[in-house]
Design a protein around this nucleic acid. Structure first.
Length: 351
DNA sequence: AAGTCGGGGCT
DNA sequence: AGCCCAGACTT
């Protein structure tokens, strides 16, 4: 007779789990919460440097609540899914007033905190039993029970939540949630799962059927369309770059970005509307290509020097590229950060 | 139920 | 060149 799933998993975790992640020391509700938000759809290794910088700048809820939205976004630059940063900031302002909840429902009521994140926070921060179901857990459970229906369907989701609930023990909540995520990340990986060292392999149905490689099953994805755009690289006489704030919703919401037009023919009209005057001809500066989850951005970068006109309030701001390169005062999309560094190298090479 | 939202790591 | 990652939110 084999021991319960959780018992075997916890014994494995004590010897082989991850016990030294930054948000585990100290393991406060605030640090756990911020880490869980950053870790949504984002790998641990990517998050760690962002987490350290964020904690150095905003060590507690009060400092985050008191911050400006742009300061929060600038620390989020390059991490992606920028709605997370806006939601985190809004939630911090609410928590600074109401205090920190200790229940799953209390956390799930906050913007940016869904069912799995709320459960992870409660389990990690308060060591109270809560059922999580993230990508790692779904993969572990789908293989262990050999679930071969597409993960996205409602029926499969219900079944996975039920299995997650059944396996979750009454005690050691924080350790168990960390353990099953560690198992998914380091043993029951997407590619080449290490079943030989898996603590729950003896009753793993996928392994018994030798179908680890084909599970879990995902719904077929649609091909991604290409969005062609033109990005306007506008510098004034002193080499400063014009950035405008993008709308709060949509791609790169709330971040600063060079003006984007659909076609090169629209470029002159756009700078006229900004109240700027072109000095000389447009130059082709390169391309910006970036693959998003559901489309591909393919933009030609056109540059020109402009004279200041009556740049209206809120129409954009001039920034020194050297400041943007090291410590950007505003949130910048990763492709724009790369572009700035490239352009800076090019201009230094010229001069 | 499907679409939107980033960026990087891995195969 | 795709797939996936400590998902949530909107339509």
């Amino acid at each position: 007779m084999t021991a319960p799933f959780a018992e075997r998993l916890l014994a494995w975790f004590d010897d082989h789990g991850r016990h030294d992640l930054p948000w585990q020391h100290p393991r406060t509700p605030y640090r756990v919460w911020v880490s869980e938000i950053m870790l949504q759809q984002t790998q641990v290794a990517t998050v760690i440097p962002y987490f350290e910088r964020f904690m150095a700048r905003f060590p507690d809820i009060e400092s985050l609540a008191a911050a400006e939205a742009d300061d929060v976004l600038s620390l989020w630059s390059g991490l992606g899914y920028y709605a997370r940063a806006r939601n985190l900031h809004a939630a911090a302002r609410r928590l600074a007033e109401s205090g920190v909840p200790e229940t799953v429902d209390g956390w799930a009521d906050l913007p940016g905190v869904g069912p799995s994140t709320a459960a992870a926070i409660v389990a990690q921060a308060f060591d109270r039993r809560a059922v999580i179901l993230d990508g790692n857990v779904k993969r572990v459970l789908a293989r262990h029970a050999a679930i071969d229906t597409p993960q996205e369907t409602a029926a499969t989701q219900r079944r996975l939540w039920a299995l997650a609930d059944e396996h979750t023990p009454a005690t050691r909540a924080a350790d168990y949630t960390q353990a099953i995520m560690d198992l998914g990340a380091t043993v029951c990986r997407r590619g080449k799962p290490r079943c030989v060292v898996c603590p729950v392999s003896e009753d793993c149905e996928a392994r018994r059927q030798d179908r680890q490689g084909e599970l879990p099953v995902r719904r077929q994805r649609k091909p991604k369309p290409v969005r062609r755009r033109v990005l306007l690289w506008l510098e004034d006489g002193e080499g400063r770059l014009l950035l405008e704030k993008r709308p709060a919703t949509g791609i790169w919401g709330g971040l600063a970005c060079p003006p984007i037009v659909e076609r090169a023919e629209d470029a002159d009209e756009r700078i006229a509307r900004l109240g700027l005057h072109r000095e000389g001809e447009w130059h082709h500066l390169g391309f910006l290509r970036h693959v998003f989850s559901h489309f591909e951005l393919d933009a030609e970068v056109l540059g020109v020097t402009v004279e200041h006109g009556g740049l209206a309030e809120g129409q954009g701001e001039w920034h020194r590229p050297e400041r943007l390169a090291d410590a950007p005062p505003v949130g910048l999309p990763a492709p724009v950060q790369r572009l700035i560094r490239e352009r800076r190298r090019a201009s230094l090479g010229d001069g």
